[in-house]
Nucleic acid binder design. Structure first.
Lengths: 229, 229
DNA sequence: GCAAAAGTGTTAACTTTACACCCATGT
DNA sequence: ACATGGGTGTAAAGTTAACACTTTTGC
């Protein structure tokens, strides 16, 4: 057995990438191909380079391990318990992002990860390091945020039906919502635009497709709108 | 001139300690007695030790630089731009806390800080490093949090009048609040307890003193209460 | 007795909730 | 023609917002 290298004052980044598919929230995991926790599932993460800003590192690491680009990453929390990494002192800065699963093709560009897969958040295995704790924190954060910020759209296709949106809220927040009231409310905010398109190939009346009008939302926000589901 | 040491992969902690006095929010600053930014005002911060958890480090550093103990510190954000520290790569984990100014005596126990002082957040000088950015972030965070969590009390004496509480909200959130509606609402939550005491030595009708009943609040929270100013 | 802040209730406007049927489309 | 989800309005309950005067105390 090889002697593993020891880390001293090292910083890493771990990304919690969340997507929504088949009515459930999923998180992107990799299978580790290096020590420690070799072979175990983990968040896509790696060490930060000396010459890169943290935010840039998060984007680079995500790209290398999963092939994902352009995910809008936000910082979640920094985990720095002494014993969180078996090979030494490594504090990790966790980032999270919401993405449209269908927009992306997962292709690790590094030998560090064997593969990248989407796992349902309600069926998480034991993850490497303190990654279960990190995911739990991300889930709490996003549930909270979903209530007060118009971010549900980031998980849906560009164009979506109101029902899809409602189901997303119901699934993530674990609540039931009255359809009529939901439609009334979300449309009254006036930041959803009809695309003019409709669903196709459904065996029932086709629903209108909407998109999130970000420019409009920013305007309304200036005027003092504050979104609340 | 001495050659300053260079840092490589180093982590530090900076604390944003907020207090409320004379109707204004204040932040605790020290005057730096060491390189870099010697002589300049800065947040109380220092390097993390290899053998301590981040959260423990935050508490230790606060104690050493200011003499404050028992402040409930929460993590704010981690700042890790490459150029944020002139002597090398240092990422810093920022923590914040709300405290009752009157409860504490400021006494630095380290030569690292020349003195610790409370500065009105609306009159901040140029701070060392990226500390102005860190303070700004803390202020945004606490304004948000104040609206949805019962944390205003942490800035007031144990016993306070409803008017003091109202003024705190008005000052920090920069809004005007109707006195009758405010009292009605805050009392209706039923987590403020009359202490039986009244103001003394005021040249007008003495107001009742209340305290925050944390146990009661926790109960109500379980039952699904959610506070909103 | 007067100055200064404490304390108190009611109404109108608005927001939220609860609830049931017809419509459009594909098979 | 039937099965499936899409789409719509109204009334009651609850919440928020606006507003002015009397009370207590120290000087």
């Amino acid at each position: 057995m090889l002697m593993a290298k020891m880390y001293q004052n090292t910083f890493s980044i771990d990304n919690v990438i969340l997507g929504f598919d088949a009515g459930a929230l999923k998180v992107l995991l990799i299978e580790r191909a290096e020590e420690a926790f070799i072979g175990q599932m983990a968040l896509p993460g790696n060490l930060v380079r000396e010459d890169e800003n943290l935010d840039d590192g998060a984007a680079r690491i995500l790209l290398e391990l999963t092939g994902l680009e352009e995910a809008h990453l936000e910082q979640l929390h920094t985990f720095g318990n002494v014993d969180r990494h078996p090979l030494g002192r490594v504090i990790t800065v966790a980032y999270y992002s919401l993405i449209r699963i269908s927009n992306y093709n997962l292709q690790p560009r590094s030998t560090f990860a064997r593969k990248a897969v989407w796992i349902n958040v309600s069926e998480l295995p034991d993850l490497a390091f303190d990654h279960n704790i990190i995911v739990a924190k991300a889930l709490r954060r996003i549930k909270r945020k979903l209530r007060h910020h118009p971010i549900g759209f980031e998980l849906l296709p560009e164009q979506f039906t109101l029902r899809q949106l409602q189901e997303l809220y119901e699934s993530i927040l674990q609540i039931g919502i009255d359809t009529r009231n939901f439609r009334k409310k979300i449309l009254s905010y006036d930041f959803l635009a009809e695309t003019g398109e409709k669903q196709k190939q459904v065996s029932h009346r086709a629903a209108k497709l909407y998109c999130f009008d970000k420019k409009r939302y920013k305007e309304l926000e200036q005027l003092g709108l504050n979104f609340d589901l």
